[in-house]
């Protein structure tokens, strides 16, 4: 099943690339739409598989008793990273390098914001490890 999927994905990508090349000669805008649509479809296909991985990971986290907030935060960070990367590549394909780099920057900042609770927990844990006499 997986092998069939990769053949389909590669064939789909090749067809989209050839069509984009052909159309680009006449109307570049439509070539961009073809590329964007191909990217969306390939992402949609892969995201179904990512769901299986996430199920396994969350099952492992539940069994080992890791607090829920960690896994949720990590999943949110991964989601932000995927969306930001996808958007940046789309915009870069459209030829707007500066907007693409701003999107990536925004993604990085939002990821850092998401990580603040975890950083707080780490600092709290470290402080509680230090003996009371030394911290004062």
């Amino acid at each position: 099943m997986i092998q069939l999927d990769i053949i389909q994905i590669v064939g789909f990508g090749l067809a989209a690339a050839i069509l984009a090349l052909i159309v680009k000669e006449y109307k570049p805008v439509f070539a961009f739409f073809i590329v964007a649509f191909a990217g969306i479809v390939l992402f949609l296909v892969v995201i179904g598989k990512i769901g299986l991985i996430i199920n396994v990971v969350s099952d492992l986290a539940n069994r080992s008793g890791i607090p829920d907030i960690y896994l949720k935060t990590i999943l949110k960070i991964i989601g932000i990273a995927y969306v930001a990367e996808f958007g940046a590549q789309m915009v870069r394909d459209a030829g707007q390098e500066s907007i693409a780099s701003k999107i990536e920057f925004a993604g990085k900042v939002l990821i850092l914001v998401m990580a603040i609770p975890i950083i707080n927990i780490v600092v709290e844990t470290l402080l509680s490890l230090i003996p009371a006499g030394m911290s004062g």
């Binding site: 069509l19 159309v23 006449y26 805008v29 439509f30 649509f37």
Partner: peptide
Amino acid sequence: IFQIAGLGIIIA
């Protein structure tokens, strides 16, 4: 995908 490409060529 073919629809988009075809529409693009026709409109060109």
